[in-house]
Design a protein around this nucleic acid. Structure first.
Lengths: 158, 158
DNA sequence: ATATCTGCAAAGACTTTGCATGAGA
DNA sequence: TCTCATGCAAAGTCTTTGCAGATAT
């Protein structure tokens, strides 16, 4: 298991994981490491390939099963950018420093992460969340905001 | 072709459709009618079944092909609520009266449409849209907001 | 008349499942 | 030790594609 270098809270999920009664296996750590070290929008296969380079024993099935688990526990968020395969991202780092939303080009599939306006968005979302929570009796755990459009290159081509 | 009863702008898409060089076929009208008359979150198969009752000649393939076309032209929006199949909704009726966002239960998959707070949301989205448009040189055409959580029933069961 | 559109069947792509083996606590 | 996790292969599900015949304009 390679220890992450650039982050102070290495293995910060350790506790959360075991606290829920799940075993902390080599595969799961490897998958979490890959997610933690990448800033891209990884598909299950992307993750599999990266993990596989270091731990050739880990199979694609385990990646799928682990991702499902991580999504259930809220450690990972699953996105759909419209290209037929799911993408996965750590919900937040040890200090919650990664929150962002997405801007998707509907022609080429390019995805831009943005953090501009995030504060305003979050503030409104929190208010909305409270209102919805009360009105519809939901316990809201997450939200999704995406913008769709054409990037400069694709706009040129049309 | 059954004419819609409850809507004044019957066939309002007629012009938009032909204006783009597409043929207005029986199948396409039937599919648009189904979308226009339903307020649910229909999957391709749901649409196929509804269309099929009245036009048994229309196949599932045509439904998929038509939906793709409608999504491309912006008449229909495609959603992913996390259950592995896409859902489709008319982007807006003849008077743009349908805009709403979604609240999804991650346990049972129930989806609630809400229009509360929509005005505030739209206002913020418009501002954000302008900013993002300029900064990332995108022509933004659409947005998506969804909240995720547990509905009252599912919360009780956990 | 002719470029589009469509149905059917088959293929494709991603994801899930069954079962015997292997590994954490 | 004993339950939980995993790999492999096979199956499942939704969606797309090829092609000949039908249709809108």
């Amino acid at each position: 298991m390679k220890a992450p270098h650039r982050r102070r809270g290495a293995m910060w999920w350790h506790g959360k994981f075991k606290g829920m009664g799940y075993r902390l296996t080599t595969s799961r750590q490897a998958i979490l490491d890959v997610l933690g070290e990448s800033s891209e929008h990884l598909s299950a296969e992307d993750i599999y390939l990266k993990v596989h380079r270091i731990h050739p024993g880990v199979g694609l099935t385990t990646v799928y099963r682990t991702l499902e688990l991580l999504v259930q526990t809220g450690l990972v968020f699953k996105f759909d950018f419209g290209d037929g395969r799911a993408r996965y991202e750590l919900s937040e780092g040890p200090k919650g420093a990664r929150h962002h939303h997405h801007l998707v080009c509907t022609a080429c599939g390019r995805v831009v992460d943005y953090t501009d306006f995030i504060d305003e968005e979050i503030e409104l979302l929190n208010r909305t969340e409270k209102g919805l929570s009360a009105k519809y009796d939901f316990k809201i755990t997450n939200h999704l905001i995406q913008f769709y459009g054409l990037c400069n290159e694709c706009r040129g081509r049309s």
